[in-house]
């Protein structure tokens, strides 16, 4: 574990000693249902994911790991933050077990039914009360795959944003980030002055697995629970009421019908049948 923490994402080091640039990092995380277990048989107004195992959004693991690595290198504090139901506590504990220092759970029945906008509103309201150098989100959530909360949050906080970051370093003066931002055909090297909001993607690091010590410590780390009233948000702005996008219907995707499957057929014969099939379909 320690070894992982000592490696910077690209193995490049500026060698700045601990304490030289104490960094305050906020990592917004989301608990998501495991897609493998999600099933829908017929059309409905909403998707019921009750009983589906939950996990910490995989892209957020990159964000948490990046924050912890920076803290280990520069010194600082990593604050984990989520808006979610009581069971999202499991995701918080995982991030704390990896090495987050403390957590904020934005918890209120009124937050339910949020879209990305009414999620970003709540996160922004809390973050405005805090000091930070960096906010690191995941590039997108693995459930809805929207990838909107990060940029919306950056706009609400009037911060520069760099989305899809797969390499991150801090300049020697401790004031800027230099990142590699994934593009369609490669990446861009993008620099920005902190505070800045990043969204983390695959390649940024190898997220560590929490060890037993980490898991035990996590339960004792400070965890603040904050509701809508404390934030000073009224019910019309948040959750389902504040959402600008509404789900009309969820339905199963069109099934592919009865594919051909050849078993125990000689390779030569199988190849012949395949090529005939493809030619008939006009595919080759």
């Amino acid at each position: 574990m320690l070894i992982m923490g000592l490696m910077s994402p690209a193995g490049q080091r500026t060698g700045s000693p601990r304490g030289a640039s104490f960094m305050k990092i906020i990592v917004p995380i989301k608990q998501v249902p495991d897609a493998v277990e999600v099933r829908i048989k017929e059309a409905a107004d909403t998707l019921n994911t009750d009983g589906v195992p939950q996990m910490l959004n995989p892209f957020d693991l990159f964000a948490v790991e990046a924050a912890i690595q920076l803290k280990e290198e520069k010194g600082g504090e990593v604050v984990i933050m989520t808006m979610g139901p009581p069971q999202a506590n499991a995701a918080i504990l995982k991030a704390l077990a990896m090495g987050g220092d403390r957590a904020i759970h934005l918890l209120d029945p009124a937050f339910e039914g949020a879209d990305s906008w009414s999620t970003a509103i709540v996160l922004a309201e809390q973050i405005r009360k805090m000091e930070y150098d960096l906010i690191i989100c995941g590039r997108q959530s693995m459930d809805w795959d929207l990838g909107q909360v990060g940029a919306e949050l950056a706009e609400l906080l009037d911060l520069p944003q760099i989305t899809g970051v797969r390499h991150l370093e801090i300049t020697e003066d401790g004031k800027h980030v230099i990142t590699h931002r994934v593009t369609e055909d490669g990446y861009e090297v993008v620099k920005a002055r902190m505070p800045v909001l990043l969204t983390a993607t695959k390649g940024l690091n190898e997220p560590r697995l929490p060890n037993i010590m980490g898991i035990m410590k996590a339960k004792k780390k400070p965890l603040e629970t904050i509701d809508a009233a404390t934030l000073g948000l009224d019910a019309t702005q948040i959750g389902r009421n504040g959402a600008l996008s509404k789900t009309v219907r969820v339905f199963p995707p069109e099934k592919r019908k009865g594919g051909i499957k050849l078993e125990d057929v000689e390779p030569k014969e199988a190849a012949k049948q395949l090529v005939e099939f493809l030619a008939k379909k006009g595919a080759i």
Partner: peptide, 23 residues
């Protein structure tokens, strides 16, 4: 819904308080 389209859209949506559906 390209890399830059998905970077730009939510930023504009938040500026103008608009609903947005990605991808």
């Amino acid at each position: 819904a390209t890399t830059n389209g998905r970077d730009l859209a939510p930023r504009v949506a938040a500026k103008l308080k608009l609903g947005l559906t990605a991808d």
